[in-house]
Design a protein around this nucleic acid. Structure first.
Length: 257
DNA sequence: AGAACCGCCTGCTTGC
DNA sequence: TGCAAGCAGGCGGTTC
């Protein structure tokens, strides 16, 4: 599922491939997206990431905000047939961008540029002190908190597990019980894990593919997520899996305190 | 108010 | 083999 590294990968590729190009046609294939305006005739001036959202900045002070949710993908095709599960499509001067999404959770919106709140992005403008002041006394479990997009943007289930594993923090700890040092460890781990995942162009555990349909390589870097029953690379303990709020959490009960 | 839970969706895996 | 149930989970909305 696309989290920060996957969306960052897409945005960088889109910036190279579609920025400066004119939209010749746009087309909706799914009635759930019927509200989406036709952006024919607009030019994409730039592409940037907002948390897990792709923002295509148009030349008319509006942006297309694409959120891929679980199974959404953006695919660049020079020619050929519409891929299966296509839900929306843009035709550009040298090719096409398809929004492909089997489970139909993805959203596409046209809003004035700058309307979507920025901030709290661990890779850009994250304010540790503000985070601790604002959330450090909450009673939520730390894993749920770092996946809360209002607190920090970009972290989903896979990277939350990896970050806490690297930081040596038990996912069921309550936020209020963490020390400042432990928070700093989490933020530092988050930067390392996410930077690496961007370098590896994302985690292709199930259906993640980049703009050109290629798999990422970060699945080979995972040390906790999906590794139940395997040995922990830090301490030799055994990775276990629990449920937190309906989601699977993977961690090492020996070295995550 | 803050935390937990539900529903949206469909393809794939598991079990009988 | 075939069918049904279970599972995956981000996020907005609802409930506790």
């Amino acid at each position: 599922m696309p989290e920060l590294p996957e969306v960052e990968t897409l945005c960088r590729q889109l910036q190279k491939t579609v920025a400066g190009k004119k939209v010749l046609a746009s087309e909706i294939f799914d009635s759930k997206l019927a509200h989406m305006e036709n952006i024919r005739g607009r030019t994409i001036s730039a592409v940037r990431r907002r948390g897990k959202t792709v923002e295509l900045i148009l030349s008319n002070r509006h942006s297309v905000f694409i959120h891929l949710r679980m199974t959404g993908r953006l695919l660049w095709l020079k020619e050929g047939d519409k891929p299966k599960h296509s839900r929306w499509h843009m035709s550009l001067t040298e090719g096409n961008v398809y929004l492909v999404d089997p489970r139909r959770f993805a959203t596409v919106k046209l809003l004035p540029t700058g309307d979507s709140a920025a901030g709290n992005d661990i890779m850009h403008d994250f304010d540790q002190h503000a985070f601790i002041a604002g959330h450090g006394r909450r009673k939520v479990k730390v894993k749920n908190l770092i996946m809360d997009q209002k607190a920090i943007t970009g972290i989903g289930n896979i990277y939350a597990c990896e970050i806490l594993h690297r930081a040596g923090i038990h996912p069921e700890r309550v936020a209020a019980a963490l020390t400042k040092k432990e928070w700093e460890k989490i933020f530092k781990s988050a930067k390392i894990i996410l930077t690496k995942a961007i370098e590896k162009r994302g985690t292709s555990i199930s259906d993640w593919r980049d703009l050109y349909g290629c798999q990422g390589e970060n699945q080979f870097e995972l040390r906790a997520y999906g590794r139940v029953g395997e040995q922990c690379g830090n301490c030799g303990g055994t990775i276990v899996r629990i449920k937190q709020g309906g989601r699977s959490t993977f961690y090492c009960p020996v070295c995550q305190k």
